[in-house]
Amino acid sequence: MFSLFLRFGEFVCAAVVMGIVAFFLHQHHKYNIGPEGREIYTEVIAVISVVLSLVWLLPFTSQFLHYPFDLIISAAWFAAFAALVNWIHRLNCGGIFHWAGLTNGSYCGQWKAAEAFSFISACFWLASAILGWYVYHHLRDRAVATDSTTTRRRWGRSRV
């Protein structure tokens, strides 16, 4: 159940970032403003995240085998967050954690919203990777364990 919550959170955050950054890309195309490379990278990560979170939202036990990919996507989201944060110093929007004016729809407010949702998305993907690692290795160890009447060798040939 917790995995479904994480996947849904990943989807929502990626969709929000995808929409905001798509608007930035439109502004760049129309007015030639903004860091196009950072925006394209963030948009690609958002699109990949939307697709994978929807596919992996289906509740199967095998979805926990994807934890290495969850970790990679989490690292990609942290890199997108860093790319967005690095650009905020050039925008004259105040500090990174200066959250005033987010609700007025300004360029700075939208940029900081993209930053915030990219960080939250990275945290969701990281939590999903940790949960997947735990469940996968916990279930694998339980499957190897047997009852006390028989012994099972992990390596080598059977003596039967």
Rank of each mutant, 00 (worst) to 15 (best):
K112A: 09
W87T: 12
C13R: 02
S121V: 00
T61A: 14
L126K: 04
R142L: 14
A122E: 03
N92E: 12
G95L: 09
H29P: 02
Y31L: 07
A82I: 01
L54P: 00
H26S: 04
P68A: 01
L139G: 05
S148T: 09
V85L: 09
H66Q: 10
V55E: 03
I130A: 08
A127S: 04
E43P: 00
A129V: 00
V17M: 06
L54V: 02
W87N: 13
A83R: 14
L54F: 00
W87H: 15
V85S: 12
L131M: 03
G105T: 06
A127Q: 00
N92A: 06
E43Y: 09
G105E: 11
F23N: 15
R153I: 04
N32Q: 07
H89V: 10
I73V: 11
L131F: 02
F124I: 00
F69Y: 07
T149N: 09
Y107R: 15
V47N: 02
N86P: 02
V17W: 04
Y107N: 14
E115V: 07
D147C: 07
L57R: 03
A79H: 06
A22K: 11
D141R: 15
L25F: 06
C123G: 02
A79D: 10
P59H: 11
W111R: 06
Y31N: 07
N32F: 05
V21P: 10
F119K: 06
T103N: 12
H28L: 12
L58A: 13
E115S: 09
I45K: 02
A79G: 05
A22D: 13
L58F: 11
W111S: 07
P59E: 14
D141A: 14
A83T: 11
G34P: 02
A82S: 10
T149F: 08
C108A: 08
A143F: 13
A14D: 10
F117N: 01
V144F: 15
R153A: 09
D141Q: 14
Q27P: 05
A15D: 11
A75T: 02
P59I: 13
Y134F: 14
R153T: 05
Y31I: 05
V85G: 08
W99L: 08
S62Y: 14
T61V: 11
